[in-house]
Amino acid sequence: MGTTHQTETGQATHWSGGAGRAWVTAQALLDPMFKPFEDLLVARIGAASAQRVLDVGCGTGSTTLAVARQLGERGHCLGADVSAPMVAAARARAEQEGSAARFILADVQTHAFEPASFERIISRFGVMFFDNPVQAFENLLRAASSDAELAFIAWRSAADNPFMTTAERAAAPLLPNLPVRRPGAPGQFAFADRQRVDSILEDSGWLGIDIQPIDVQCSLPENQLIDYLTQLGPVGLCLQEADQHTRKQVVETVRSAFDPYVHGADVHYTAACWMVCA
Results as ranks from 00 to 15, higher is better:
139 N>T: 02
169 R>M: 13
12 A>K: 02
212 Q>W: 02
211 I>M: 07
207 L>G: 05
121 I>Q: 00
52 R>L: 01
256 S>A: 15
87 V>H: 00
178 L>F: 13
37 F>C: 11
209 I>H: 11
97 E>F: 01
267 V>L: 12
190 A>M: 07
167 A>C: 09
82 V>F: 03
239 L>E: 04
87 V>R: 00
165 T>N: 08
91 R>Y: 00
259 D>F: 08
98 G>Y: 12
19 A>N: 10
200 I>N: 03
199 S>W: 02
276 V>R: 00
253 T>I: 05
269 Y>P: 06
120 R>E: 01
101 A>R: 01
133 P>V: 06
213 P>Y: 02
210 D>L: 05
203 D>A: 15
114 E>R: 06
146 S>T: 07
217 Q>R: 13
203 D>T: 06
31 D>Y: 05
220 L>V: 11
124 R>F: 08
235 V>Q: 04
29 L>A: 08
186 P>L: 12
4 T>G: 15
244 Q>S: 15
48 A>I: 03
256 S>K: 15
28 A>K: 11
183 P>E: 10
215 D>I: 01
263 H>K: 14
131 D>K: 09
243 D>Q: 10
122 I>P: 01
107 D>L: 06
89 A>D: 05
123 S>E: 03
122 I>C: 09
78 L>I: 08
105 L>W: 07
204 S>C: 08
199 S>V: 04
164 M>C: 15
164 M>P: 06
233 G>I: 12
256 S>I: 08
187 G>Q: 11
189 F>T: 07
60 T>R: 02
260 P>V: 00
136 A>L: 03
66 A>S: 13
172 A>K: 15
76 H>Q: 15
49 S>I: 02
76 H>A: 14
164 M>S: 14
202 E>Q: 12
90 A>F: 09
193 D>S: 14
267 V>M: 12
77 C>M: 09
62 S>F: 03
24 V>E: 03
265 A>E: 14
259 D>S: 12
123 S>R: 04
256 S>F: 04
121 I>K: 03
244 Q>H: 11
74 R>M: 04
7 T>H: 06
200 I>R: 04
54 L>V: 01
179 P>T: 01
234 P>V: 08
54 L>A: 06
192 A>W: 07
214 I>P: 00
134 V>R: 03
57 G>S: 10
60 T>P: 12
107 D>N: 15
46 G>H: 07
39 D>A: 13
29 L>R: 10
73 E>Y: 10
105 L>N: 05
182 R>K: 10
189 F>D: 08
45 I>F: 09
205 G>V: 06
123 S>F: 05
35 K>Q: 11
118 F>R: 00
17 G>P: 00
262 V>D: 12
110 T>Y: 00
196 R>S: 12
69 R>N: 13
60 T>I: 11
152 F>C: 07
40 L>Y: 08
139 N>K: 03
6 Q>G: 01
178 L>H: 15
258 F>Q: 10
218 C>H: 11
31 D>G: 05
197 V>C: 13
270 T>E: 08
89 A>L: 02
61 G>E: 07
28 A>G: 10
252 E>N: 13
216 V>I: 13
76 H>L: 09
247 R>D: 09
207 L>I: 03
138 E>R: 15
161 N>R: 11
